[in-house]
């Protein structure tokens, strides 16, 4: 019994452990370095003026206020459209659909959508919204493209939380003679709030980070507009602006400043998604 593990087995165990530690440590270090580097290069370039001014060729200054506005507009427009669509589709799948084939077709379609790369969305968005529907290169065309992209996300998170609404709630409500729509409105929908919020947060993250799908649909202008005027005109979001400043104009300071802002936003979005998941989990337990 005091016989030790054979050298071969000891080497295997130690070797695998070393590989696991090294891989995990490498990933941890990568994340830290990436955040550190981007913030280090970016934050010194962030000034009040930089955040609140439009770029001016005359003064040779760069400001990202229009890009910030454009990002916000695209987020709002996309979310307003995608949330009801995604939630209704999820409700249909889990509450109404009785035809199994139809359900699997819809679910397969959603899976397919989530696997399509954003450059293809950009291309089809350009062909369909900008050219076929004659919307031109506008933020609205970009937002509609992003609606298709984020539809599967909202659907999936909503569906997942609908699954956790106990069947007995529905039965209880039906037992009281409530119609289907009433049951959905009063029992089912309130039960999937966490899924809707999570889907919303994840979508905002994806919209803020998206560039390839917006480049050809929403354009690259840096003009300050109001919300409705903005949607009807071309404009770069923060991510697109980062690409343009880095790749086409070689303004790396500006690019890093935007990158730092995006990094902070990503951090906030992830933390809030985790917080939402945690708080609802706790609530469910009680």
């Amino acid at each position: 019994m005091n016989k030790k593990l054979s050298p071969g087995r000891r080497a295997y165990t130690a070797g695998m452990k070393a590989l696991m530690y090294a891989s995990t440590a490498a990933i941890g270090a990568l994340v830290l370095l990436l955040i550190g580097y981007v913030l280090y290069r970016g934050i010194p370039n962030i000034t009040w003026k930089f955040l609140t001014m439009a770029p001016s060729i005359l003064n040779d200054t760069i400001g990202i206020w229009p890009d910030i506005l454009n990002s916000i507009y695209v987020v709002i427009a996309t979310i307003i459209i995608v949330l009801p669509l995604g939630v209704c589709a999820a409700v249909y799948l889990s509450e109404y659909a009785s035809n199994k084939r139809l359900v699997s077709i819809i679910e397969y379609a959603a899976e397919t959508l989530s696997g399509i790369p954003s450059i293809i969305y950009g291309l089809v968005g350009m062909l369909f919204f900008c050219e076929f529907l004659k919307m031109q290169t506008t933020l609205m065309a970009g937002a509609l493209t992003l609606v298709i992209m984020n539809l599967p996300t909202v659907m999936r998170t909503t569906q997942e939380s609908l699954k956790t609404v106990p069947q007995s709630y529905r039965e209880g409500a039906f037992g009281l003679g409530a119609g289907k729509w009433r049951v959905i409105r009063t029992v089912v929908l309130p039960g999937c709030v966490d899924g809707v919020i999570t889907g919303c947060i994840l979508s905002v993250g994806r919209i803020l980070g998206e560039s390839a799908a917006l480049l050809f649909t929403a354009g690259i202008a840096h003009v300050v507009n109001g919300f409705f005027m903005g949607l009807k005109s071309s404009g770069a979001t923060l991510t697109v602006a980062l690409y343009i400043y880095a790749k086409e104009r070689g303004e790396f300071g500006v690019a890093f400043a935007i990158a730092a802002i995006l990094m902070l936003l990503t951090l906030i979005i992830n933390l809030s998604a985790e917080a939402v998941a945690r708080s609802f989990k706790n609530k469910r337990r009680i």
């Binding site: 019994m1 005091n2 016989k3 030790k4 593990l5 087995r9």
Partner: peptide
Amino acid sequence: EYKGEDIFAPGVDVSELRRQ
């Protein structure tokens, strides 16, 4: 004690103990 040896003794190989 398993066959007279304490199974919690520091030198014991858990893998070999569980084999037996």
